[in-house]
């Protein structure tokens, strides 16, 4: 049973981390609470579905195209809806909720409430220490880990990453040092939404598509970033694995209460917050800032 818990926890944790890190990034750098983050994740999944089923594209073509398209839509949304009200964080939050609802309703009108699916890129399963894991899950795990490494490299090893971190530390000083803070925010939004799109791309063959599929990951993602410390990428990473392992533990130790896995994960978040109100890495994040 232990090996089941470890393997399932690692895979689920990586997928959660991918979503949470994009959300954390845009909040840390631009102070944008983008509630529509998982709606973009859903949008990417639907783009892939349309590409594969209606336009006859190979999933290998549809997936990168969808990620780029979603990234562009993210930038466009930033320019149209977020940038004009960016100074009012509460207004941004509400605007992104509205944006998410618009995306949901648009998909509901276009595709109805039907449950849709995309076939896996690789069929079959591997048996790892006696546990069956689909190749698609392994692929999702690998891509998520690569994306996380890529994000870390971008932040720590590139000039853009330096600009992002500088802006995250102090927007005004970054501006005074000649960085175009608004452009950095827009770029961050694009990268963040592309990470959400990538999340959508890797899970679309695993999950079922429906116009409400953004809700559950949104709740989990918010729980993860709050648990890890708002805006802390490291915190999101650790938080994602903690909550994923909590969910898997519930399924294995309390099968009758498998439906409680989300609630248990959220309770863990509340418990941690009672002890550390700033989240696991909130203090470290403040130091970074």
């Amino acid at each position: 049973m232990i090996q089941n818990i470890i393997i399932n926890g690692l895979i689920n944790g990586s997928i959660y981390a991918l979503l949470a890190i994009g959300f954390s990034l845009v909040f840390g750098v631009a102070r944008i609470v983008n509630i529509a983050h998982t709606a973009f994740y859903m949008l990417a999944a639907y783009f892939i579905y349309v590409g594969c089923h209606h336009l006859g594209m190979s999933p290998y073509v549809a997936m990168p195209l969808s990620i780029i398209l979603v990234g562009l839509l993210g930038v466009l949304s930033y320019k149209l809806f977020i940038n004009p009200i960016r100074e009012h964080e509460a207004a941004v939050l509400i605007a992104t909720i509205a944006l998410a609802m618009v995306i949901q309703e648009a998909l509901l009108i276009s595709f109805g409430g039907h449950y849709l699916g995309v076939p896996p890129l690789v069929s079959g399963y591997a048996t790892i220490v006696g546990v069956k894991v689909t190749y698609q899950h392994l692929l999702a795990f690998g891509v998520a880990v690569l994306a996380l490494i890529g994000t870390w490299t971008l932040l720590m090893k590139t000039r853009l990453g330096l600009a992002l971190r500088a802006t995250a530390q102090d927007r005004e000083v970054a501006n005074l040092m000649g960085m175009n803070e608004a452009r950095v925010a827009m770029l961050t939004m694009g990268i963040s939404v592309m990470l959400a799109g990538l999340g959508g791309a890797i899970v679309v063959p695993l999950f079922v598509l429906d116009p409400h599929m953004w809700m559950h990951p949104l709740i989990m993602m918010l729980a993860i970033v709050v648990l890890g410390g708002l805006g802390s990428i490291k915190g999101s990473f650790v938080g994602a694995y903690i909550l994923a392992f909590a969910e898997v533990l519930v399924v294995f130790l309390l099968p009758m209460g498998a439906y409680l896995k989300g609630s248990v994960a959220l309770s863990i978040m509340i418990l941690v917050l009672l002890i550390r109100p700033e989240g696991l890495f909130g203090v470290a994040f403040e130091e970074e800032r």
Binding site: I11, V208, A258, Y259
Partner: peptide, 16 residues
């Protein structure tokens, strides 16, 4: 096993 009606992943349940 009682998963949520909208669970998106039941591999843990299936492993169990």
């Amino acid at each position: 096993w009682r998963p949520s009606p909208v669970a998106t992943d039941v591999t843990a349940e299936l492993s169990a």
